[in-house]
Structures are given as structure tokens and as C-alpha cells.
């Protein structure tokens, strides 16, 4: 049985490649764009930029704290630094450096974080950060973006180069469906309603937007019409779009590759509780670390795939 999906794809690509290609294009557009990386140039797909602009690229070695400080100094001098490493090392390891030298000092640094979440896969829990969105969205001045596929990540990368201020851009490792348009316009802070519905809203971010698209088709087969909203920007959150949708549907599901604590679900809950306390069900990791496995196996085991979104939607509907 094949699902009647509202979005389809012809190829799978990793979101980190969307970042790498967007970064190169941003570098071509604006000579102020510079790059830094802490010994993960290949993994972050920053090699093409380094090759084309060797003078504007700085290998920092395995020294993330210094990299963040360097980036802050470069921003101060008028450059637009993109500092890349794994999401784990781009957040928790350097939280204080980001807090003082970037966020509090309001420097135009782009923190580019790859290999986020469970879909990092076999490397296991040491590298599968599930707390980064929460840490970053707590910081004043910080913009937090988690795009869903190659095309959206590339567009987001180009957009943040033109935005003045600290940004946390989160992307990942696995090969993933490319289901959003090439050369799309990316509007920071503007949620994207991908599928209209009337019964329940699914707010999804990152890789789980695809799972939400699949879940919508599964729910539709059972006569449930879900609205799917792509929350690529977690901060600033598009509260207007959230409230407008939930006013119509009356209940919601949040879906993210992150801890339930502190992430997208909590952001939406904060909005709903203040303005429209409708039922909200969370899809995310429930206060646990990950483990080794394939991305698909991990999403299934930790309850983050389309089937789990369907179940959550039904729970939300039952509470209406």
C-alpha cells in the first residue's frame, strides 16, 4: 500500500551538504563571509569554500572554545564568520563562550552545527546531542534555526549570511528526502504551512518535518485531516502562525529530534498556555540519551517517526 503523500522526493541528500553548498554560495556573494572549523571540515562540507577562499577560512584544530572567541573577534572586525563543528561541540562544550562573547556581546556569529540529534546514528549518545535547541533558545539575542532538508538548509544558510546577529543553525548527517523546492526563499522567523488541515496541527522541525508529511498521509487515510506546519525557526517563534492554526484545529502535536525538555514542544506550549490552552502532545526524546544504531532504527526506538506522530495526533484529538 502506498501513501498519498502531499510532498514527494526524487532524491535523498544530507542537510549538511545543503549547508556546505549554501556556505560556498554565500561566500561568493559576500567577501565578508569567512569560515572557521574545528577539525571537521569534511564532515561539515566546508571544504569547497576552503578550496575557493583559502585566505578566508581558518582551521582552528580541535579547540572549539577558541573558535567561538575567534569568530566573535572576526565579527567585531566586520566579517561574517560561520563557525562549524558537530552540534554537540557547538553548544554544550562552548556554552559559556557563546553566552559571553557572542550572545551577550551581540556579535554577528553564525554557529553552524552538524550531526545533531539521534539521526547521527552509529556514533552513539556521546555525539547525539538532544539538548542544543533548548540551550540555544534560552540565550537572549540568539536566533535558532533547524531546517528540514537539503534545499531548506541551503536557503537558510544564505538567509543567515544576510541577517545581522548571532544565529544557531542546526543540521544533520543522514541522507534524507529532499522534498522542499530548490532555490526557495527562506524567511527567518516565518513558519511555513506546508499542508492545510482542520482536525489537528502538526508542528515539526528539522528531519521530523518529513515524518510529519508522512504522518499526514497516514492520518488522512483514516479520515483525519492534519495541518502540517514547518517550524524551521524555533526562535524567534512565529506565534501568530501557531495560534492561527490551533484556533482552527483545536489541538496540536509537536515533533522534533530533541529532548521534550526545552525544545520546540516547550516553545509551542508556552505560546498556547498563554493565549489558547489547547491540547498539545509532544513527539521527542523523553528524558533519555540515545545510543548506536541506524537513523531509522533510532527514530523508531525512541518514538520519533511518522507512526508516533500519528499516535500523538490521535491522543491530541481525543483530548479536544
Amino acid at each position: 500500500m502506498s501513501l498519498d503523500l502531499k510532498y514527494t522526493y526524487t532524491e535523498k541528500k544530507d542537510t549538511r551538504s545543503g549547508f556546505g553548498d549554501g556556505f560556498l554560495e554565500a561566500g561568493r556573494k559576500n567577501p565578508k563571509v569567512v569560515g572557521l572549523c574545528a577539525d571537521l571540515i569534511g564532515s561539515l562540507k566546508m571544504g569547497d569554500f576552503q578550496k575557493e577562499f583559502p585566505d578566508r577560512f581558518f582551521q582552528t584544530g580541535i579547540a572549539e572554545a577558541n573558535m567561538i572567541g575567534l569568530a566573535a573577534g572576526m565579527a567585531l572586525g566586520g566579517k561574517i564568520p560561520f563557525a562549524g563543528t558537530f552540534a554537540n561541540f557547538a553548544t554544550g562544550r562552548v556554552y559559556d563562550q557563546i553566552r559571553q562573547s557572542v550572545a551577550y556581546s551581540n556579535k554577528n556569529v553564525k554557529i553552524c552545527a552538524s550531526h545533531a540529534g539521534l539521526t547521527l546514528g552509529e556514533d552513539g549518545a556521546t555525539h547525539q546531542i538532544l539538548e542544543d535547541l533548548g540551550m540555544m533558545r534560552m540565550l537572549p539575542h540568539m536566533t535558532v534555526i533547524n531546517p528540514c532538508d537539503y534545499n531548506q538548509t541551503k536557503a537558510a544558510t544564505l538567509a543567515i549570511a544576510e541577517y545581522e546577529g548571532p544565529v544557531y543553525l542546526r543540521f544533520g548527517r543522514p541522507s534524507w528526502p529532499v522534498f522542499t523546492p530548490a532555490n526557495q526563499k527562506f524567511e527567518i522567523g516565518k513558519a511555513w504551512k506546508m499542508i492545510d488541515g482542520k482536525d489537528v496541527t502538526i508542528f515539526a522541525t528539522g528531519h521530523l518535518v518529513w515524518e510529519a508529511v508522512v504522518a499526514e498521509a497516514m492520518l488522512r487515510e483514516e479520515g483525519i485531516h492534519a495541518e502540517v506546519i514547518n517550524i524551521h525557526t524555533i526562535k524567534p517563534l512565529d506565534t501568530e502562525a501557531i495560534l492561527e492554526s490551533v484556533k482552527k484545529t483545536g489541538c496540536a502535536v509537536s515533533a522534533e529530534e530533541h529532548q521534550l525538555n526545552g525544545g520546540l514542544g516547550d516553545s509551542i506550549a508556552q505560546t498556547l498556555i498563554r493565549h489558547n490552552p489547547a491540547p498539545l502532545e509532544y513527539v521527542g526524546v523523553n528524558d533519555s540519551f540515545g545510543e548506536s544504531g541506524t537513523p531509522t532504527q533510532l527514530l523508531e526506538k525512541y518514538g520519533l517517526n511518522a507512526e508516533n506522530i500519528v499516535k500523538a495526533a490521535k491522543r491530541a484529538l481525543a483530548r479536544k
Binding site: 578566508r56 572567541g69 575567534l70 573577534g73 572576526m74 567585531l76 572586525g77 562573547s101
Partner: peptide
């Protein structure tokens, strides 16, 4: 730049020094 949490100033100084070189 803000300072107070120790150990960060040299990195920042190097960042802008690198910019000056560029």
C-alpha cells in the same frame, strides 16, 4: 566585547587581529 568569565579575551583579540591581517 563582554569579559568577566575568564579565558576568552585572547581568542577574541586573535579573531579581530586575524581580520586586521585580512
Amino acid at each position: 566585547i563582554a569579559s568577566g568569565s575568564l579565558g576568552q579575551g585572547l581568542s577574541v583579540a586573535l579573531g579581530i587581529a586575524q581580520t586586521k591581517k585580512l
